[in-house]
Design a protein around this nucleic acid. Structure first.
Lengths: 232, 232
DNA sequence: CGCAGGTTTGAGCAAAGTCAATCTCTGTGG
DNA sequence: CCACAGAGATTGACTTTGCTCAAACCTGCG
């Protein structure tokens, strides 16, 4: 049974069976891995968001990626037993946690599973490339609009729709850390969006996009192309 | 024989044997893949550099990564047959080009090879995370110093050494596209480096770092930690 | 010799950062 | 039920960084 097409609990059950994963609930902010430290685990997100981040010497944090339900997180770097980025629970989350040894064994034994993981990795790398382009070259409006489109696509099957409310579990600070802007500038940019009546953003990121086409144009993205590119 | 520990020609021969790869010489600028278009090939770099880049709607290019000798390049995105980024020859290069089908088959049949590739991918993702941190949060000096350290590490086994000359095949424009700065600003930043007698940079990126420790401090990086993190 | 691609320099400008004060919720304990 | 604390959002004033445009300058090469 190709459990890996399933979301959430049933995939988790299969992982428990195949890799002796342990299911754990963690609360928001829980630190799972610290960059540079040894790591012995691989994570599968059942519900909630994880965040992969790095910090500069002066304590500024940059969010490298979010890890959403249905995604795997292997914290390893080139030295596979050494963590590349900090991994934290961004929200309360339910995880299947596997020992790396069991994880590697599953990959080796099941080429189909490995193929699935390869696809996930390709999707994640494409997403990073796309984000990097915005980070390097785009202005605040484009970066923020893009991040909202991307995260909505990844978090909600439909992707962004005209007039449809959706929620992202982000503070403006976190969004800023993700797109490389200060929280103050995120706030100002939101104000400009609201003034032009592009979006409604209420209580902690309940978002309604009024004109998705225009919003996507600001994000410099074609939603369906992006879906094909970054959704595994 | 674990050919994959070898650099260059012998690895290429093995790939020819195992995947029916064709060896090709391409000249600088040769376009191999275009973002969004279908792709049917996977590349192994024998010599020279490839570049993976994306462009904004207004024609600005951002370099996502360089692909150096000994590295693989799978251009696929979440839709594995669709290219995620432009892939070009940055310099004249010698490549082993494999059909994707043959490549997948090799991965499926040889878990050891797949494991090697996994490590390469982890290294590349770590590198992207590290670069993203600089892109999102660091100033011009740090970004440029970091890029030089990173590329020197990746291109030369020793990494940067005090007073030792090395070459990077980059124009200031290309470096700017890599770190998200205009070529003018790269030039000015180099000037500042030279004024402080940190480096000598002559003819098209022959670089001598006079005090690697100080330079690494500006790059906000620990060279040996970086090596462990991003060199597969 | 002259051209092309790349680099350097100057001047002015725009985007985003910082700092600090204020405002708005929301949840909590009296 | 209210007061208050704390987190997050907003706003203003000012500064910094890096961009753009344009001109000048190398330098290797046909």
């Amino acid at each position: 049974m190709p459990f890996w097409n399933l979301r959430g609990a049933s995939a988790a059950e299969a992982l428990v069976r195949l890799t002796d994963a342990s299911i754990q609930n963690v609360s928001a902010g829980k630190v799972l891995e610290v960059a540079g430290e040894p790591t012995a685990y691989v994570y599968f997100v059942i519900s909630g968001w994880l965040v992969s981040s790095k910090s500069t010497s002066d304590g500024q944090r940059h969010i490298v990626d979010f890890i959403l339900p249905g995604q795997f997180c292997d914290p390893g770097s080139a030295r596979i037993t050494q963590t590349a980025t900090d991994i934290c629970a961004h929200t309360r989350a339910e995880l299947a946690i596997m020992r790396r040894r069991d994880w590697s064994r599953l990959l080796e034994r099941s080429p189909e599973f490995q193929t699935l993981v390869n696809r996930h990795v390709a999707a994640r790398c494409s997403g990073m490339a796309e984000r990097m382009l915005r980070l390097g070259k785009a202005n605040a409006e484009t970066r923020i609009a893009y991040a909202i489109c991307e995260l909505c696509l990844r978090a909600h099957d439909t992707g962004p729709l005209n007039g449809q409310k959706f929620h992202l579990p982000l503070t403006q600070q976190a969004l800023g850390d993700y797109v490389g802007l200060s929280s103050v500038h995120v706030s100002r940019t939101f104000c400009r969006f609201k003034q032009h009546d592009l979006v409604t953003i209420s209580d902690h990121m309940d978002i309604i996009i009024h004109d998705v086409d225009e919003f996507a144009a600001i994000a410099e993205v074609d939603i369906e192309a992006l879906r094909a590119e970054i959704i595994a």
